[in-house]
């Protein structure tokens, strides 16, 4: 270190830092959504076949039971009048089934819940790391870390996380957790287990994709050639098959680039490698250097 002048060292570091920041800003390929950023090849998912769903709403009941939410009698879920209004996941119902009228066909019932993105925006947006993408595909929330900022609500492209507004003390962020507790014990997610027609198929995401493509290939009249979640926002663990366009079911129209891609590459790019303080010192150093030269000349 002795042979390098202090000034040269600062110059080099600044140059390297700027280059790194610039590079990472334009190439948002590798995202560091979370400290537990594991995107396992064997991650699980669920294939939702909306052509099979009968709208029995048993998944809603099973979900509440599995998460310790007051579920009521299973017979209450035969009530189809709830379909008159579109419902969204809420603090006391992590999944809901809606019915949509489509042209020239029977109404289609569609289950909504967290899509468990491969590149989750909520994980990226969470400033305290309360969200994490698990190895089995689940995106879960840790109440011990959450500070209640609700950035996740804003960030989610599917508008899934909900806030427990009804609780004054320690309100929680509530959303589908892919039954992380159950799957860790080798059980099926509650909704998948109860579905009478197996409209929900639980398995490895790669297998599900193969099955979904196979179904489309063999039944071109039954399905449109689109698996929602295969590529949307960089891929999701939950994926959907349908007979008609997904815009009929009020799914947001999303691109294929990961939701946290833009914000994260800017943020992580600028703050990576200790760049801002170094750049600041370099700037100050530069000013000092120039003004110093000037003042020596004046003295002469």
């Amino acid at each position: 270190m002795g042979s390098i002048k202090r000034r040269d060292f600062i110059k080099t570091v600044t140059a390297v830092g700027c280059t790194a920041a610039g590079l990472s800003a334009v190439t948002p390929k590798k995202l560091n959504a979370t400290p537990e950023n594991i995107l396992s090849k064997d991650r699980y998912g669920v294939l939702v076949d909306t052509t099979v769903c009968i709208g029995c709403r048993r998944c809603e009941w099973a979900c509440k039971k599995a998460h310790g939410i007051e579920a009521g009698s299973i017979d209450d879920y035969d009530d189809k009048s709830v379909f008159q209004e579109e419902r969204r996941p809420a603090h006391d119902s992590y999944t809901v089934v809606n019915s949509y009228d489509v042209p020239n066909a029977e109404p289609v019932t569609v289950k909504v819940q967290c899509m468990h993105c491969d590149q989750p925006a909520c994980v990226s947006a969470c400033i305290v790391g309360a969200f994490s993408k698990k190895e089995n595909g689940a995106v879960i929330w840790d109440e011990s870390k959450c500070i209640g900022c609700r950035y996740c609500l804003v960030a989610c492209p599917f508008q899934v996380p909900t806030f427990d507004y009804h609780k004054a003390i320690e309100p929680e962020i509530r959303k589908c957790d892919f039954c992380y507790e159950r799957t860790s014990k080798g059980q099926l997610p509650a909704c998948v287990e109860i579905c009478p027609v197996e409209a929900l198929t639980y398995g490895k995401r790669s297998d599900l994709l193969q099955i979904a493509h196979d179904r489309i290939h063999r039944n071109p009249d039954r399905y449109i050639d689109h698996i929602l979640g295969e590529t949307e926002v960089g891929g999701t663990s939950w994926m959907y098959l349908s007979k008609t366009e997904f815009s009929n079911y009020n799914f947001p129209k999303l691109g294929n680039s990961p939701a946290p891609g833009v914000s994260e590459s800017i943020q992580h790019g600028i703050f990576a490698y200790f760049v801002p303080p170094i750049a600041l010192y370099a700037l100050l150093g530069g000013i000092m250097y120039l003004t110093k030269e000037k003042s020596t000349e004046e003295e002469k």
Partner: peptide, 14 residues
């Protein structure tokens, strides 16, 4: 329902 061959529905679903 928890099985390896997911290409056809399980018995209950079928």
């Amino acid at each position: 329902r928890m099985r390896t061959d997911l290409s056809k529905p399980d018995l209950k679903g079928a």
